[in-house]
Structure formats: structure tokens, C-alpha cells
């Protein structure tokens, strides 16, 4: 068979690809969670214009959104690799820690990137909340924490859902870039498979299909969330 589909099946690449896909999803989910925490904190800072901090946040978002993701990953990986290898070998975990280390770097890099985009989404959602709502809550004597919990957060979440969906889609696609530092995720497995079987076409095609499946399924999930939130507003 010209494309080597049979070889992919025979040599057990299918389980390797599925394992890679699960690592891709795991990196995506953990980075997205980290990115959302960063996004909410930085988004609030940017929205409320807390003076010295808002400058820092502006610098962070414009740097991360203007510089290629690959360059950020190289910076984090190369600058820490020497230090970490030293520490890890000193404690005698040289081989064990290799994949775990790449995972940590991946999550830091992708989390920082998705955090910068989330910040903009959160800021936009906060800006869309009518000032009158917050003023009314303040007039009723609600405390700052309560205003956030009862008035700001619920409205912000609803407005932010489409933006968060976009950030999630970019995040999951950005995880492919950490394959360059050797994390055994979907893209890396496909690369190794393509090189060792000499059937790059079929391997990258499979990778593309798996990524497409992930993005289509999460798109459907977000559509569902949006629909549910919309129903609740109608009551």
C-alpha cells in the first residue's frame, strides 16, 4: 500500500497517537486553566486601571501577543534547560524527569500565551458590563467581593464565552509547537512516526484529523454552553 496505512495499524502507532492526543489535550486543559487564572487577574487589573500594575499587564500582553509563540518557547526552554538538568542530575532523576520537565515548560509557555489572549477577552467582557449595574450594587451597599461575585462575574462569564472559545481553539493548536522541545504529544509522535516509517503523508494527515476532531468537538461543546446561558437569560 502506497500510503502505509497498514504499517501504521500493524506497528502499534495507533495507541501511540492516541496517547499523544491525550497528552495534547492534557497540556491544552492545564495551560488553559492557568491562562484563565492569569486572564481574570490581569483582565481585572487592566479594566480597573490599577496604576503601576496595569502598565506591567500592558507590557505582558503586547509582548506575548506580538512575538511568535515559537520564540517564547525557545526562550523558556533554552534558558532553563541547563539549570534544570543540573538540578535534576544532582538529585539523580536524570532520565525520569525528562518528559515531566518538557511538560512543565510546555504548560508555562502555552499558559502564558493563552493568558495574554484571555486577558483581552476578560477585559472586553468587563467593559461590556453596564456601569449602572455596578453603581446600583454599590448604592445598595454591597461589598466589593460581593459585587464581583453577584454582579460582575456572572455577566462577564456569559459575555466572555465566545472569546474564551477562540482562546481555547488557539491554545489547543499552539500545543503543537511544544513538540519542538521534545514533549511526546500528538505532533511529536507523528513526527517520530513519520521519520521511522518514512510515511510522513499518512502520519501528518492523521495528526491533522485528530486536531480537527478535537477542535470540532470542543466547538460543539462551546455552542452548547452558549445555548444554555442564553436560555437562562430569557427567564
Amino acid at each position: 500500500m502506497e500510503f502505509g496505512l497498514w504499517q501504521v495499524w500493524e506497528a502499534g502507532w495507533v495507541t501511540a497517537i492516541l496517547r499523544g492526543a491525550s497528552i495534547t489535550i492534557l497540556v491544552g486543559l492545564v495551560s488553559m486553566a492557568a491562562g484563565l487564572v492569569i486572564g481574570i487577574v490581569c483582565g481585572l487589573i487592566k479594566w480597573a486601571r490599577i496604576f503601576p500594575l496595569s502598565l506591567l499587564v500592558d507590557a505582558y500582553t503586547s509582548l506575548v501577543r506580538g512575538v511568535p509563540e515559537l520564540l517564547i518557547i525557545y526562550l523558556l526552554f533554552f534558558s532553563s534547560v541547563e539549570f534544570v538538568t543540573k538540578v535534576v542530575t544532582a538529585f539523580g532523576y536524570a532520565g525520569v524527569a525528562e518528559n515531566g520537565y518538557a511538560f512543565v515548560i510546555a504548560v508555562i509557555a502555552i499558559g502564558a500565551i493563552s493568558g495574554a489572549y484571555s486577558t483581552e477577552v476578560v477585559r472586553g467582557a468587563l467593559a461590556a458590563i453596564p456601569d449602572g449595574h455596578i453603581e446600583a450594587a454599590r448604592a445598595l451597599g454591597l461589598s466589593g467581593g460581593r459585587i464581583f461575585r453577584r454582579i460582575i462575574a456572572p455577566q462577564m462569564l456569559r459575555i466572555a464565552v465566545p472569546g474564551i472559545n477562540n482562546v481555547w481553539q488557539t491554545t489547543i493548536k499552539d500545543t503543537a509547537l511544544v513538540s519542538v522541545v521534545g514533549l511526546q504529544e500528538l505532533m511529536r509522535i507523528s513526527f517520530v512516526g513519520a521519520n521511522s516509517t518514512r510515511h510522513p503523508f499518512v502520519f501528518y494527515l492523521i495528526a491533522a484529523v485528530v486536531y480537527l476532531a478535537i477542535t470540532l468537538v470542543s466547538q460543539a461543546g462551546f455552542d452548547g454552553i452558549e445555548r444554555r446561558l442564553r436560555v437562562r437569560t430569557r427567564k
Partner: peptide
């Protein structure tokens, strides 16, 4: 548009560069 926006650019680049050259 769904296929190209739903897959990472890196996969597309590898598929074109390494994959397509395999096809006669």
C-alpha cells in the same frame, strides 16, 4: 475554512513539506 482553521499551522506546514513530496 473549517479544516484550515481547525488544524495547527505546524501540521499544515509539515504535511505540505514532508507529506506531499511522497505522492508521485
Amino acid at each position: 475554512s473549517n479544516v484550515f482553521r481547525g488544524t495547527p499551522l505546524l501540521v499544515q506546514i509539515f504535511l505540505f513539506y514532508y507529506g506531499l513530496g511522497q505522492l508521485s
